[in-house]
Each structure stands twice: as structure tokens, then as C-alpha cells.
């Protein structure tokens, strides 16, 4: 039984529209903000008697609450060739559908930006409540041939709203750390949740002995490896080292990455948000 994806914000949304997340707008909420004179907030139901009695000017004080607001949720997906390997397309598709359901449940808006060498219009969806369109995109992703590099990722920020949004960044980070830093710098105004699918299973499946030829999905390079247990251990160690470097880089920008191993489940993401809120 899969649990529905849930996300929560450790910050206040500035959106005007009432929603399900803590907001900055004053309105019909549960979270006390301040007292106001009755003239400024003419709602006699919220007159605070104790505050009114204590008011040296004898005016009526009204309690004002913070309204719960919506938030724009974006999924920026790396559609470069390396994302086509393993079960990354499946994870992406499932993530998109899970997000669509969750966003619909919260009454938020979901946008999607797919980036490879450039940002194609068909992989771009402005934040909205078009559930059907999202499902269409997910279906198209199923048959999509992933190709090209992930160079357009840093252009994605141009398509994001200026208002702070919740951005899920789904990329395997198969590019230099400097490129990742550039990308994260463009996204700094937003609340970024880096979801990094890991290739650990791919490396674990390498044979202990034998000759293996690999070709790089993105730059057409080829390498032949004379596999032996020591080399396999070295490869796995290199992979772990890379994950540490990525974590370091993300944390430098105040983001905690979530590495998705072979199996994806919404439970992982829920767990991530629970940890982050604490």
C-alpha cells in the first residue's frame, strides 16, 4: 500500500490564495499574528476582551490571524541521456504523478520543467491545476528517448515565478560540481528539494571478473574495464565519494539532497519532509 505523498513547508508562503500551508497573509487562520484596532479589522467576533481592557486609549483590540496559503510546486527534471538509464524514467514518471495527486490534494499548483540540451516547450508546464495535462506529460515521458546533456538546467530558473516556490529538482547530477553550483545559485530564492537518483545498483551489478566495455550515454566516450573485485570496490567507493561531494555542495546552498536508490516510494519523500520540518 503506497502512502500518498505529503509535503510541508518550514517557511511561510506569500501567496494570496488560501491554501494548506503556513502563509504570510492575514486572514482566516489559526495562527495568531497580532492585535489590530477594530477599525482596521472590523470583525467583532475576534475582539480580544483582555487586550481591549488593557488598551490605554480604550479602543477595541481585535485578534488577527495568519491565513494558510497555497504554494506553487515545480518539478524541474533533468531529461539528459543519462536520465534514461536504469529505472530513472520510471522514478520520474511516478514522482510526477505522485506530486500531481499531492498538489491536487493540497489545492496547490504544479508546474513542470524538463531540461536537456535546451528547454523544449512540450516539457514545460506553467504552474496550474491542469491535472490531465500533467498525466499527459507523464505518459509522454514513458516513451521519450532521453538524449543530450543537462546544460539547460540552469536556464530553468527563468521559467519559475519570482515568488518563493517549492521546487523539486530531479537530476542525477552527472555534470561537474561547478555546473551544479551555478544551477543552485539560480535557484536560491526557492525552496529546493534535490532528488538525486543514484546509480549504486548499476555499479553493484558489475561483475567481479571479466571484460566490460562501457559507452557514455552523454559524451559518446568508451571505456573497457578489466573487472576484478578490487576495481569494483574502487568504483563503488568512487560513487560514494561522489555522493559525499554532492551532499557537501547542496548543503553549502542550504539544501539537503535526497538520494533515491533503486526503489522509489513516496514514503521516502514523506520521511524527508518530516525530518526537514523538525
Amino acid at each position: 500500500m503506497t502512502e500518498p505523498l505529503q509535503y510541508r513547508l518550514p517557511w511561510q508562503s506569500t501567496a494570496v490564495y488560501p491554501g494548506a500551508h503556513p502563509g504570510r497573509m492575514v486572514g482566516a487562520g489559526q495562527l495568531f499574528n497580532r492585535h489590530e484596532p477594530l477599525i482596521a479589522s472590523p470583525d467583532p467576533r475576534r475582539i480580544d476582551l483582555r487586550a481591549s481592557v488593557l488598551d490605554p486609549f480604550g479602543g477595541y483590540r481585535v485578534r488577527v490571524f495568519l491565513q494558510q496559503s497555497t504554494v506553487n510546486v515545480y518539478l524541474i527534471a533533468d531529461l539528459s541521456a543519462s536520465m534514461g538509464s536504469g529505472n530513472k524514467p520510471g522514478i520520474l514518471q511516478k514522482l510526477l504523478l505522485d506530486l500531481a495527486d499531492a498538489v491536487a490534494g493540497y489545492g496547490d499548483k504544479l508546474g513542470f520543467i524538463g531540461c536537456s540540451g535546451r528547454i523544449e516547450p512540450r516539457w514545460r508546464l506553467n504552474a496550474g491545476r491542469q491535472h490531465q495535462t500533467v498525466i499527459q506529460i507523464a505518459q509522454q515521458l514513458q516513451t521519450h528517448q532521453f538524449n543530450g546533456l543537462a546544460t539547460a538546467l540552469s536556464e530553468a530558473a527563468a521559467y519559475l515565478p519570482e515568488r518563493r516556490s517549492l521546487v523539486f529538482l530531479f537530476t542525477d547530477c552527472h555534470f561537474p560540481i561547478t555546473q551544479l553550483e551555478t544551477l543552485l545559485r539560480t535557484l536560491q530564492t526557492h525552496d529546493v528539494v534535490p532528488l538525486v537518483p543514484s546509480d549504486l545498483q548499476h555499479y553493484l551489478r558489475l561483475p567481479d571478473w571479466g571484460m566490460v566495455t562501457f559507452h557514455d550515454l552523454e559524451n559518446r566516450g568508451t571505456r573497457t574495464l578489466l573487472m576484478r573485485p578490487a576495481l569494483k570496490q574502487k568504483i563503488i567507493a568512487a560513487h560514494q565519494q561522489r555522493q559525499r561531494e554532492l551532499t557537501h555542495c547542496f548543503r553549502a546552498f542550504g539544501m539537503e539532497p535526497l538520494f533515491i536508490e533503486e526503489a522509489y516510494s513516496s514514503r521516502q519523500i514523506n520521511q524527508y519532509f518530516r525530518q526537514r520540518a523538525a
Binding site: 543519462s82 538509464s85 542525477d172 571505456r223 573497457t224 574495464l225 576495481l231 568512487a238 561522489r242
Partner: peptide, 22 residues
Amino acid sequence: MAVNPSPWLAILPPDPLSTFAT
């Protein structure tokens, strides 16, 4: 040789023995 797709070759550590064998 039959080529296998690899998501990212740059991560593979340099291996002189493999290079020599190649």
C-alpha cells in the same frame, strides 16, 4: 566488443591495468 550503456564514465576511477589491456 559489446558496449554497455553507462550513465557517467567520468565517475569511474582511472585504472591503468584496464587501459593497458584495452
